[in-house]
Computed example of a mutant assay.
Amino acid sequence: MEVLGRLLGMLAVLLVGAGLRSTGALNATRTARLNAAAYYVALPALVFVGTYDQSIADLLSAELFVGSLIVLFATGTIAWIASRDRLSTDRRSVAIIQSYHSNLGYLGLPLVAATFDARVTAIASVLLGFVTLVQLPLTIVVLSSFGRADTDIGRELAALATNPVLLALLAGLAVGSVGATFPDGVAAGLDALGSLALPLALLCVGAALQIDADAVELEAVGSIVALKLCCMPLLAWAVFSALSVDGATFTAGVVMFGMPTAVSTYVYASELGGDAEFASLNVFATTVASVGSLFVLITLLG
């Protein structure tokens, strides 16, 4: 019941964000400030605290790396096949990217940190880092290939070099590799900042969600929800089981890949020629439905 309560609390904060946006209390400027606080402060602090006292050799295994790539590309391939001849070009590109592009940073890592132990959180931080390096470029390439908008792919990819989450991950792993220690007060302060990542992120996600009831296509939306919340974590379960990874790696991999579609896919779809309304609807649907699917996953994983 504790897990269910936590997930329902997550949904409640998400809906509060949506409600504050609808009343005008959380306007675009305030949402941008909250987003900046989560993206540049709270989430990097969470990543750093989760990795600075861990050795990279103990966290990053070949099985985790290979298994994650298999899950990512297998899900995208299934979505590409499933959407062929069923959706328009701008919707097909969105369907493909939203099947695999998970909300690992804003929801995945904070939820793992709030639910599991330090080792699972550290592995989830590493997974967040290298999967981001794969799924972001892949999303840009897919949308650019299908879309009609002109974009500088090189510029979009170069932005990864200044990604604060990746920089925090590299810093944490570097500190962990040399065995440096921090005063208790500093570590506690960073831990407190990291604990703000989930509520801040949920408010931002809620404020960004938009839904047009007239634009709902239940079959199309349902297929994306099924791919993202059922197919992808089941693939992760099968792949990591076949690779015989340890329990912490298995838990981190399955839960992280069970996250809903990232809100950033809506932004990329808007910029790169995808169907933005369709993308927003899918983000909303997968985020709300993930409360049930994550409850099942976390309960099964103990």
Rank of each mutant, 00 (worst) to 15 (best):
V239H: 08
M256H: 12
V296I: 13
S293M: 04
S177L: 10
P110G: 01
D214T: 14
L111D: 08
L26D: 00
L294R: 05
G9D: 08
I224M: 04
V47S: 02
G67W: 04
G253Q: 00
F240Y: 15
L166C: 00
F146K: 02
F278C: 02
A171I: 01
V126Q: 13
S244A: 15
L4H: 06
S280M: 01
T287L: 03
T249E: 14
T51E: 11
L173P: 15
G76I: 00
V221F: 04
V112R: 05
A12G: 15
L128D: 07
A36L: 04
V141I: 13
R155K: 14
A32R: 15
S293Y: 06
L167E: 06
A149G: 03
A113K: 08
A236S: 14
V239F: 08
G129I: 02
L107W: 11
T77E: 00
V288L: 10
A279D: 02
T132Q: 01
A252Q: 11
V291C: 09
F278G: 01
L127W: 10
F284Y: 02
I96N: 12
A149K: 12
D275E: 09
Q98Y: 06
A113W: 11
F65G: 09
M259L: 12
I97C: 03
T29Y: 10
V186S: 06
T31V: 02
I224W: 05
L87G: 01
I298D: 09
S125P: 03
R92L: 03
F240T: 03
S145G: 11
V41D: 07
G5L: 12
A226S: 13
L87Q: 13
A12V: 02
W80C: 03
Y52P: 13
Q210G: 14
G194N: 04
A124D: 06
D85G: 10
V221I: 15
G292Y: 01
V66L: 15
L72V: 13
L294W: 08
A79E: 01
I153K: 07
L272T: 00
F295S: 10
F250Y: 14
F257L: 05
A248C: 06
R92W: 08
A197L: 01
L111K: 08
T75C: 06
L4K: 01
L301I: 09
G105I: 00
L198H: 10
F73N: 12
G67Q: 08
V134C: 12
S83V: 05
R30G: 11
V13L: 15
W237D: 07
I96P: 14
S83K: 06
A262R: 10
P260Q: 01
I153G: 05
G19A: 15
G273F: 10
L72Y: 09
V225D: 02
L14Y: 07
Q54C: 09
R119A: 02
Q98V: 03
G206I: 00
Q210R: 15
V126N: 13
I153D: 10
L173T: 04
